[in-house]
């Protein structure tokens, strides 16, 4: 589903590569933690998968797309098959919960009758059916993140990318988010989650890919966060 082949990314403003000759492969339906300290290149890797940036060297594959070489007019098609959530939720403050989720479908031209049936379904999946008409400012952090996940998942993506989704949440709320991501993973969606939350990684016992200063440091199929830190 995802394959990086000797990927190197150097930002124009810095000399040190953010990713340095990284090769890694993720199968369809896997759940992968991408770990490493701040600045190790986790977000950069996710940005390359989304084609928010292109690698300087190597190839990035998602499904059958050679992402780094994709013509920019084909990028929307790639992104329509991927979902992404961030630490800061990125909800639109002037839209309700349901509208925020519907927005993701509206802007890719989905017909209204589809939107009307699919949005309640996904809100149900994230246990927010009762809060469809709330504004984001009326939600807790955990609820806001679940809305963001609903929005990322509503178009049934092949891959869900999560960049430190629990970074702003307390441990209990984080557990709820992890349960939800696992549920999404069980539908067959490949999940890649960047995090430096040791407790979560250790409790889940999933595949762990570790980056250190942009280099691939470790790839354990049922890993823990690590001992040295």
């Amino acid at each position: 589903m995802i394959r990086l082949e000797n990927v190197t990314k150097v930002y124009p403003t810095s000399t040190r590569p953010a990713l340095d000759d990284v090769s890694v492969e993720v199968e369809r339906g896997e759940f992968v933690f991408l770990i490493g300290p701040s600045g190790s290149g986790k977000s950069t890797l996710l940005r390359l998968l989304l084609r928010e940036d292109v690698p300087n060297e190597g190839n990035v594959w998602v499904a059958n797309w050679n992402v780094g070489r994709l013509a920019s007019r084909r990028v929307p098609r790639l992104r329509q098959r991927m979902g992404v959530v961030f630490q800061d939720f990125r909800l639109l403050p002037n839209k309700t919960v349901a509208e925020n989720v519907a927005f993701a479908l509206e802007v890719i031209g989905k017909p209204r009758h589809t939107i009307r049936t699919v949005v309640p379904e996904v809100l149900d999946l994230v246990n927010l059916a009762g809060k469809a008409d709330r504004m984001p400012s009326e939600l807790s952090g955990g609820e806001a993140q679940r809305v963001a996940i609903a929005r990322a998942f509503v178009n049934r993506p092949l891959v869900l990318l999560a960049d430190e989704p629990t970074g702003n949440l307390d441990p209990e709320t984080s557990t709820g988010i992890m349960t939800l991501l696992e549920r999404i993973n069980r539908t067959g969606t490949t999940v890649v989650m960047a995090t430096h939350d040791r407790q979560i990684v250790d409790s889940m016992r999933r595949r762990v890919v570790e980056l250190s200063s942009g280099k691939l440091a470790r790839d354990d199929s049922r890993g823990v966060y690590g001992t040295g830190r």
Binding site: V75, L78, R79, A104, V107
Partner: peptide, 10 residues
């Protein structure tokens, strides 16, 4: 920004 992220076309 969100539109671009969820795959809205130009």
């Amino acid at each position: 920004g969100i539109m671009r992220l969820v795959g809205a076309t130009r």
